[in-house]
């Protein structure tokens, strides 16, 4: 545990009668990028807010940077960076003022904050807009500013709650590239996300949360190997020709692991996608489209939670 930046045992959060986090164990090591995956309401943000030393835990043990949030909350918060799920920028101030004032909360001298702001504006590609008010900026620019702001104190631990939700693909890639840079500089990161490509890109290790508990943990590769088959056959049908998932599973018995019946498509989990596709055709089914692909975290997620990642 000597090197653990975050350690939780039986971490629990209750809001009245809702138990948002139900006894989770976590160990995040220095320099690691750690992910939380889970459907809406799984308890990701609640867990993040406890780690951020903002929300007091209901039960369990928690250490962040080796300190107890209940006792040393401000000391921990001084050394971490937080990107909340919802932006909380000061919309009536300029981009630069937002960075300046935020830096001042961390006890930084004015000169240091001014210099840091220039660097962060560059980092977030907002130099052009530095002296504009925040309000009219696009959602992606605001998000980048929120991320840049979280770096004003050179945090040892960066907490990112859905950093790229709502961004266009180009903006997301920019954020990923920036986060990767930070990782190389040794900044430990904890990320929540609904995007499995984001999780695969960024995370060394991740947990899947559902209903307040951790249902699986491992590297992206491990999780795919453990919870999914090598290949997936995706089938789309005209509504009138669409077989029930169970019926298809019966036809393919022995050849496939299982069949997922989604509203828009059927997913056939199998070691050999082409063989399965041939068997479907042999049984007289005429799919509109058929696609064989490798398993991804999306499939792990579906298997574990019964839900797709983005709903």
């Amino acid at each position: 545990m000597a090197d653990g930046l975050v350690q939780a045992r039986g971490l629990t959060k209750r809001f009245g009668r809702v138990e948002a986090v139900r006894g989770i164990d976590l160990d995040v090591g220095r320099g690691e990028v750690f992910g939380f995956l889970g459907p809406n309401g799984a308890g990701k943000s609640s867990a993040m807010r406890m780690i951020a030393c903002v929300s007091p835990r209901t039960a369990g043990d928690l250490q962040v940077l080796g300190l107890d949030p209940d006792r040393d909350g401000p000391a921990v918060r001084a050394r971490i960076g937080v990107v909340p799920q919802l932006d909380n920028l000061d919309l009536e101030l300029t981009v630069r003022q937002n960075l300046h004032l935020y830096g001042r909360y961390f006890g930084l001298p004015r000169a240091a904050v001014r210099a840091k702001a220039v660097e962060l504006l560059e980092f977030a590609r907002l130099t052009e807009r530095a002296d504009d008010e925040v309000e009219p900026l696009s959602g992606g620019m605001k998000r980048r500013l929120t991320i840049a702001r979280a770096l004003v104190n050179d945090p040892e631990l960066l907490l990112l709650d859905e950093p790229t939700t709502g961004l266009d693909p180009q903006a997301r890639h920019l954020v990923w590239e920036r986060l990767y840079r930070l990782k190389r500089e040794g900044v430990t990161q904890i990320v929540t996300t609904h995007y499995m490509d984001e999780a695969e890109q960024l995370c060394d290790r991740l947990v899947v949360m559902d209903g307040g508990v951790i249902v699986a943990e491992g590297t992206p590769r491990e999780l795919i190997e453990r919870y999914s088959t090598r290949e997936v056959l995706e089938l789309r049908f005209e509504p009138e020709h669409r077989p029930a998932g169970d019926a298809l599973a019966e036809v393919l018995a022995g050849r496939v692991d299982r069949v997922e019946d989604l509203p828009d498509r059927l997913l056939v989990y199998t070691a050999d996608g082409d063989a399965a596709q041939a068997a479907v055709a042999a049984a007289g089914h005429r799919p509109l489209a058929a696609l064989v692909r490798r398993s991804s975290l999306e499939d792990v997620f579906l298997r574990l939670t019964g839900r797709t990642l983005v709903d």
Binding site: A78, F106, L108, P155, V187
Partner: peptide, 8 residues
């Protein structure tokens, strides 16, 4: 990595 932040 050493944070520059401190409690004011």
């Amino acid at each position: 990595v050493r944070s520059t932040g401190r409690v004011p």
